[in-house]
Design a protein around this nucleic acid. Structure first.
Lengths: 199, 199, 199, 199
DNA sequence: GTATAAACGAGACGGTACGTCCCGTCTTTGT
DNA sequence: ACAAAGACGGGACGTACCGTCTCGTTTATAC
């Protein structure tokens, strides 16, 4: 991870990128999305709320979607990290439960839903969203599965991607339809798909 | 001057709703969505393409989303109907496969994805989408499950909604991420979730 | 439910023109102009107010301007008639004063001003307005002058049209600028232009 | 191709008002009025013709009427200025003749007629038109009269406003009715109203 | 008497313009 | 050099009327 300059940084600009402006934009976008929905998330509104010029946004982000993507990537790792320690069936299940909570309860989860939605409307968003979020995440999840299989913790009947679609898909679907994830769903999925009884 | 007012007489409108205009709007919306994506789906573009006044759209539909919903409801029943005959595990599996094909291959499936996406952005869309599409569909699917259970065809470990989320969720998730539904996913889901081996 | 078609029963129409509808349109137009100004005088508003279908207006009048012209012609003769008896300098002066009052005080005078205004905006209006109102009126006024000259009542230094422009122009101009006609203006005009002292 | 970044450099805009856009709007409005009449003078048409966004018009002018008023005020002083030197009966007469020519011949005169007309239809136009054009002009004319009276050049029988109404009214009236100002009218008015023979 | 034909109210239709909002680009000015 | 500010050309929004057109009803006249 690169440097990340530290001090409060009060001076409003200079000839280097203004970190305060960057954060103001990210927070403004996040807040607007949560408070007024994606429809109210216009570049002008972000700039207004962040007390920033429109050009400052266009200078650093190709579109408002990339702003959201930046917030998502930061928040996602914080609030729903893929287990990197030696995973067990239980820790995988816990990860899925955490992911479900993130999606359906955490305001930051709204960002993910909004981006997944916007990706349906705009190919450029789809491209970025896959490259910067879905792809890396899926890669981590595949690794998690592989290590659990290696350790004999699980033995899924399906290939890694199909398995992950089967586990994550229902959770995402519930979130998209505004429903809570039904009690027992995650555990049953884990039990039936990751530990199929041998014939 | 010879009279010659003979042929079927282009009736073009009158005091009552013009069916030709209605169809032109529905088709224009569908075509625009498939050809240029949701971003190009403006009321003005629909009107232009349908050869119709904007007011004619606003007169009959509260928003472009409702236009899409109308086309979805008509198409969905035609191209991916929920089985109403006595369902078996096999016919349920066939329904899911048909649904997957509808979502990922059929242009009309794009309409469903677009609406599910727009529902994330706009509460009014979410409301309509649930009330007019998701709700009735889920109801039919519940009935399908119930009859299959009664007939002893299946015995799901989860409640009806959780079962349906687990079956439909992965398919929708694949479609949303632009992936094809992995081979074996549907059959494994049906087998593991609807016919759990007796202990 | 016994209907009992009792009340006077507005006999809604028949095979011939409906006089009630005609009057309703004329009055609605007049009222709208006076109450809400020319800007609110749309065909739809007239129809709404008169309780009449738009087509009924378009059937009998080529435009809303002709509706106004109809009301003007009826009212103008009633409220500011050109003297036809043997005119004197005094009766001419009285006519001009009456005309000034009509223009600046009488609601029906607003119709004349509105038409004169609209004639600036639209050549068709100008054409009709001249043909149906200004022309005939000017003709009557010329006759009035001619008879007064013949009788030795007046001896204007200018030709008939120039004289009338000089007499009527200031009154119309005051009305158009929203001013009242200054005290003494009419009498001075009559005295100085119609009875010039012999050199 | 040699570099030659020489010419005035189409600056096209910036933080401050774009003078080129302002002029383009004024000229477009003027041209449209003269060429196609007030009916064709829509904000959209002005924007189209000026090669300007609609918002640029709405940003600087409250309505199309104010655009016209701006052109009128600029043109009016250039083409029909009120005499400021010591006025004589002759220079007053010349001014009136110039004004008559302006109104009936000069394309810019159409703007005045159109505004006077629109003032009949819309109170806001009336307000602006009086405040920004009629009022100041009348003030200049009153001054002209006053100085001529002081110098003993004229001795009108009527008060200043009535005198001006009597002089200007017939000219405006002729222009409004599409007539040319009759030969002899102006000179007779000046002679009979400004130089009344002493009793 | 019944059939025809005209005028009626209602209102849907394809359009045009309204005045507003936001897009993404561009310039100016300040730090 | 970067930032705030905001004007710019463009284009979609949802509304109001335009003038035309059917619809179904009502009623006076013609057969």
């Amino acid at each position: 991870m690169p440097t990340a300059s530290s001090q409060p940084r009060r001076t409003r600009s200079g000839n280097r990128r203004d970190e305060a402006a960057r954060l103001a934009v990210l927070h403004a976008a996040d807040d607007l999305l949560v408070e007024h929905g994606f429809g109210a998330l216009t570049v002008e509104a972000i700039a207004r709320r962040a007390g920033v010029g429109k050009q400052t946004i266009y200078r650093w982000w190709p579109s408002k979607v990339e702003v959201l993507l930046d917030t998502l990537i930061e928040d996602s790792d914080k609030r729903s990290a893929v287990p990197t320690e030696q995973p067990t069936a239980e820790s995988i299940q816990a990860y899925l439960r955490g992911f479900a909570r993130f999606l359906t309860r955490d305001p930051a989860g709204k960002v993910l839903l909004a981006l997944m939605a916007e990706a349906q409307h705009d190919p450029a968003t789809a491209q970025s969203f896959h490259q910067r979020y879905l792809g890396p995440r899926r890669e981590q999840e595949r690794e998690m599965l592989a290590r659990a299989i290696d350790a004999g913790e699980i033995s899924p009947r399906l290939g890694p991607d199909a398995t992950l679609d089967a586990l994550v898909g229902p959770i995402v679907y519930c979130a998209l339809t505004g429903a809570s994830v039904p009690r027992g769903l995650v555990s049953t999925l884990v039990e039936d798909l990751l530990r199929p009884r041998p014939k």
